[in-house]
Design a protein around this nucleic acid. Structure first.
Lengths: 183, 183
DNA sequence: CAAAATGTAGACAGATTTGTCTATGTTTGC
DNA sequence: GCAAACATAGACAAATCTGTCTACATTTTG
């Protein structure tokens, strides 16, 4: 993200704070201070905190898949790509202090409010699930949907549990379990 | 929980609301109104909202394992017991409107604050992990720790994903994946 | 019975929060 | 070069929130 105008500075700052501190724990005023932007500018570009949340999710969805695919593109074989999904977590989660998945974090924080944000999150995860199906299909064309979903579940479980234990072991376990499933 | 004195009514009401609405989204005053208890009573028995949160977690930890083990006790063979873990989710999650795991929900809400509550949650999950190790060991004495952990990860992933999709399919997928791992 | 403990009801302080509004300054495009 | 659009700074409203405190009622206990 190029930090040009106030609009981008707001999104970049909100994105960082929403992940580090949580959405509800982050106040509008803190975003304004750290982004060095006036309050009117925020409500000019994004109408409310909720809409800023939606913009945040849209931005991060795109960013997430870009980074993820870029990492996978380093690998050539389909099997290596699937394994690399977990290696991506092994690298990224410690860097992020095991804060887990921003999308799941937000979903949990919201409980029932904000259907727009919920929609973004469910769409994102649906897309990830489909991506695992595609990767698995590419490795083994006759593979079942349930095999891909099992790996997807291990992937998601690994993120959550590495957050709980503040450690990579769940990711390593999940990686090896996925490998075995694909044998 | 017997709903006798104010102390118990507070905990019972808080427990329900913390799960349904979330911890931060539930105000002290709402608990007092619904429990029909005066504010002074709450601060008499529990010193603060944070300590009420800790009491809530302690109470629910015990309750969770009791219900879980009672369900598993219906099964006789070790394999049936492991499969029943997932069947328990198939029954409980739809009943709870797919609100997911209260412990993980709270962990995510808290972000970094309240180390006491975090401790309760991590202890609870560690105990669950150990329980899966025990079940797996009982089924196959030479089984590795990583097999048990893999099933644990599927279990945890299933809870989260059934919350995202508001559906049981992740639980069914996880159950079948676990079965296959144990073959 | 009387005293101590416990519970009720709710006002209040103090700190937050989101969102609006006024007033002023700075770019930018025609 | 001037007007329109954009940005700043921050006061303010209105609605939270947790926690304290006063005043009174009820229950328990010696």
């Amino acid at each position: 993200m190029k930090e040009n105008g106030p609009k981008d500075r707001i999104l970049a700052t909100a994105s960082r704070l929403f992940y580090e501190q949580g959405y509800t724990q982050t106040g509008i005023n803190q975003i304004l201070e750290e982004a060095k932007v006036a309050k009117a500018s925020l409500y000019q570009h994004y109408g409310s905190k909720d809409e800023l949340g939606v913009a945040y999710l849209q931005y991060e969805r795109e960013r997430w898949f870009k980074l993820f695919q870029a990492y996978l593109d380093q690998k050539t074989t389909p099997l290596d790509k699937i394994v690399a999904c977990f290696e991506y977590l092994e690298e990224s989660q410690p860097q992020r202090n095991f804060k887990g998945c921003r999308f799941i974090n937000l979903l949990t924080e919201l409980s029932d409010s904000s259907p727009k944000m919920r929609e973004q999150i469910v769409e994102h995860k649906s897309k990830l699930r489909a991506y695992f199906a595609q990767l698995t299909q590419h490795y083994k064309p006759i593979a079942s949907q349930s095999l891909a979903d099992s790996i997807y579940l291990l992937f998601e479980g690994a993120i959550i549990e590495s957050k709980i234990y503040q450690h990579v072991w769940p990711i390593v376990i999940a990686k090896n379990a996925a490998k075995k499933m694909l044998e």
